[in-house]
C-alpha cells in the first residue's frame, strides 16, 4: 500500500524542504521505493538539498502539461537507488500546476512507489492547495515560536477544510537550553494549542546547515542529533514505536570543550 505524504507548514523557513529531503532519504535507506515531488515552483530547493541540481533534465511542469512522461523527469539519487526526485520548474510560477493535474500524476506514480512525498510551498494560496490535493497524510512542520505555531494552527484548519484528517506534527529547531529557561515555547504549550499527534521533535543542530550546503541530508550523518531525530521520525512513519529523544543538556565536557575552543 503506497502512501502519499505532503509536508507543509504555512510559515516559510521552518524546515519543510529539509524535512522532505531527510524523510525521503530515511525511507529509501530502509529499502522503500520513494519519490519526492517538489511543488515549490519558482523557488525550488529540494534538488539542492539532495545535491541533484545538475542532473535535472525535465521538470514537474513539463510532466503535468503532458510534454514528457513522468519517468523521464524523475532524477535518481546518486547514492540511494530507490530514491527519486521529481523537481519543479524554476522559471514558471505556482499557477503552472493545478490540483487535478497533481492528483492524476500521483495516481499514476502510486503504482510504482511505496512513498510519494510532496514538498509544499509556504503560504495558503494556490501552491498550497495544489500540493495537498493528492495527499492522504499531511505532516505539518512548525517551530517553537509563536508565529510558526499560529500559522501551523491555521494550516491544520485549512487541511481539515480540505478533508485531510490524517495530520501529524513535527516540531523543528528546538533549543533545549532556551526551553529550559522559559524563553521558548515548550512541547506542552505547542501540544495544547495544536492538539495533533506529534511524530517528531528535532533539536536545532548546526550540522543541518552543513548538510544543506553539501547536498547530503543530515540523516546520513551519524554524529548529527537532528539526523538521529529524523531517523526516529522515519521509524515512526513505518509504524515503529520509538521514544522521543531526551533533550540534550550541555554537559560539563561540552562546556569545557567550548571553553577551550574559545581560548
Amino acid at each position: 500500500m503506497s502512501q502519499i505524504i505532503v509536508i507543509t507548514s504555512g510559515k516559510g523557513g521552518v524546515g519543510k524542504t529539509t524535512t522532505t529531503a531527510n524523510i525521503g532519504v530515511g525511507l529509501a535507506m530502509r529499502g522503500n521505493k520513494v519519490a519526492l515531488i517538489d511543488t515549490d515552483t519558482g523557488l525550488r530547493n529540494l534538488d539542492l538539498l539532495l545535491g541533484l541540481e545538475n542532473r535535472i533534465l525535465y521538470d514537474l511542469v513539463d510532466v503535468t502539461s503532458g510534454r514528457v512522461q513522468y519517468k523521464k523527469a524523475l532524477v535518481r539519487h546518486k547514492k540511494y537507488e530507490n530514491l527519486y526526485l521529481l523537481p519543479t520548474s524554476q522559471i514558471k510560477d505556482k499557477s503552472a500546476v493545478n490540483p487535478e493535474q497533481l492528483v492524476k500524476l500521483c495516481e499514476e506514480m502510486k503504482k510504482e512507489f511505496d512513498f510519494i512525498i510532496i514538498d509544499c510551498p509556504a503560504g495558503i494560496e494556490q501552491g498550497f492547495k495544489t500540493a495537498i490535493a493528492a495527499a492522504d497524510t499531511a505532516i505539518v512542520v512548525t517551530m517553537p515560536e509563536i508565529s510558526a505555531v499560529r500559522d501551523a494552527d491555521k494550516i491544520i484548519g485549512e487541511l481539515g477544510r480540505a478533508d485531510k484528517e490524517n495530520v501529524k506534527l513535527i516540531v523543528n529547531r528546538i533549543r533545549p537550553q532556551m526551553v529550559e529557561k522559559g524563553d521558548m515555547l515548550d512541547m506542552g504549550d505547542i501540544d495544547e494549542i495544536l492538539s495533533v499527534a506529534c511524530i517528531g521533535q528535532i533539536p536545532d543542530d548546526e550540522k543541518v546547515v552543513v548538510a544543506t550546503n553539501r547536498g547530503e541530508p543530515a540523516i546520513t550523518m551519524s554524529d548529527s542529533v537532528a539526523g538521529q531525530a529524523y531517523k526516529n521520525i522515519v521509524a515512526r512513519l513505518c509504524g515503529e514505536n520509538v521514544p522521543f529523544l531526551k533533550p540534550q543538556k550541555e554537559g560539563f565536557f561540552a562546556r569545557l570543550k567550548k571553553l577551550f575552543g574559545l581560548l
Binding site: 491555521k154 484548519g157 485549512e158 494549542i193 492538539s195
Partner: peptide
C-alpha cells in the same frame, strides 16, 4: 464539536456551545 483554529470564524444569532478549544486568531 471541534476546536476553532486560527483564522476560523463562528457566527451565530443564538448562543454557542463549543466542545473544543478556541485557538489564538
Amino acid at each position: 464539536n471541534h476546536t476553532i483554529r486560527g483564522g476560523q470564524e463562528i457566527k451565530a444569532n443564538c448562543s454557542v456551545l463549543i466542545c473544543g478549544n478556541v485557538n489564538p486568531g
